[in-house]
Design a protein around this nucleic acid. Structure first.
Lengths: 232, 232
DNA sequence: CAATGTGAACGGGTTCACAGCC
DNA sequence: GGCTGTGAACCCGTTCACATTG
């Protein structure tokens, strides 16, 4: 019984997973789904599903479950996925090109409408159907295509400058893949994804589990460590 | 104090950020760094830095700070980055190719040693210097190169099958970019990154701020996440 | 004196368990 | 009977504040 309230960040982060899980039900199929089923589809547990959905409203039927179509509609509404948010990709290196072509973005309402790069050989041409502009064109590109989100896929050295330019152009949502800390104004929403960092977290567990066999994890049972040859 | 106990997951996830932040200090430079400085370099706050580092041991000097080199060494040791963990990339589409070429991986101790794809035109050739094999060769590739981590960058339909094959080949650390829930044995460490989901989280805030935006009451710039669009 | 190291307070998120309703 | 909706308990991580130490 909740029409207006605050949605916890942790819940917001899971809503897209629920929406994704609902993809298995055909639109208009009049299917019902229990919290247990949806939990499996989203990779969480049932209690979390019920709690999360309760923040949006009372959309289930006790003893039955949730109507898949209705739930999809309500989650979509909460997330605002009815809108499409045009993206500009900054930096057309390996990663930038892959992101610009990523079909999953457009499918979820985030079409890539333009790209930015500093390489004179790329500026003015189309790469995989995406027009590439120079940095100075950013503001006009944003205005022309009503860009809502900027993706930073530049080398680390160029990332802060790119962020600054995006902010100047009026962008308030940025997703960065650069492995450095970016500084942006408070009203700008910044999400940072560092792929190497993610791998290192995996590496921690890997490292720990390979030590098993020795007594404990007190730091002595290590193989020799190569100092000084460190990263970067 | 010093004896290493269990390190909280949240702390583990930040250790790579500290390591990354320490990159600004030249190796062997004998620099000292305060929790305040390191916090800025890693994008967190000072209390968190001190608490996190205290889980590793007492490596600082009161009134002075931390020795950058020593700290780098100790964090590296805790993370196990002295080792290198060879990677196999499964799925050489846009994203897979970008990941296979991502220089940041090798720099951080995760060299991509091979790739897997089902496309007969790709099997047997090298793409950007990475040898591409068919799925049936996975086990031998893993054994030959001592592969420790598998990256799944296949289409969603092929992701579960790929995960199964990686597990069969003895891989216990998997990073998946496929937008579905994968099922793996308990002893397998799985990290899922869904780029479209990340964007949708950004989209939520965008959507919220555009709804509330404009009708700005007093100077309070609070981010309230409101559900529903008000009365009717 | 300056900055670490750390108990203690705090707060958000997860889980429990059961009342409420179909 | 079955499943949702939700207060309450619980757990974990964050923040505070200060005693401690070079």
């Amino acid at each position: 019984m909740n029409s207006i309230g605050r949605i916890p960040d942790a819940t917001v982060a899971r809503l897209p997973l629920y929406l994704r899980g609902l993809d298995v039900f055909p639109v208009g199929g009049a299917a019902t789904v229990s919290s247990e089923e949806l939990a499996a589809l989203a990779g969480v547990n049932a209690a979390k599903v019920r709690k999360d959905l309760s923040y949006l409203g009372t959309y289930g039927t006790r003893g039955v479950g949730y109507d898949a179509d209705f739930l999809r509609f309500e989650i979509s509404r909460a997330l605002g996925v009815a809108n499409t948010w045009p993206i500009v990709v900054c930096g057309m290196g390996n990663l930038g090109r892959a992101l610009a072509n990523h079909s999953g973005f457009a499918e979820r309402g985030f079409p890539v409408v333009a790209a930015i790069d500093t390489d004179p050989d790329k500026i003015g041409v189309e790469i995989d159907g995406i027009a590439v502009y120079g940095p100075s064109a950013l503001a006009s590109v944003v205005a022309k295509h009503d860009v809502a989100v900027g993706i930073i896929a530049t080398p680390p050295e160029a990332a802060q400058g790119t962020a600054d330019r995006l902010v100047d152009a009026g962008i308030t949502s940025i997703m960065s893949f650069a492995p450095i800390v970016l500084t942006v104004p408070d009203d700008v929403d910044l999400r940072a994804v560092d792929l190497a960092t993610e791998l290192q977290i995996l590496g921690f567990h890997l490292h720990r589990s390979r030590l098993v066999g020795g007594a404990d994890v007190s730091g002595d049972r290590e193989r020799d460590l190569l100092v000084g040859e460190g990263p970067v």
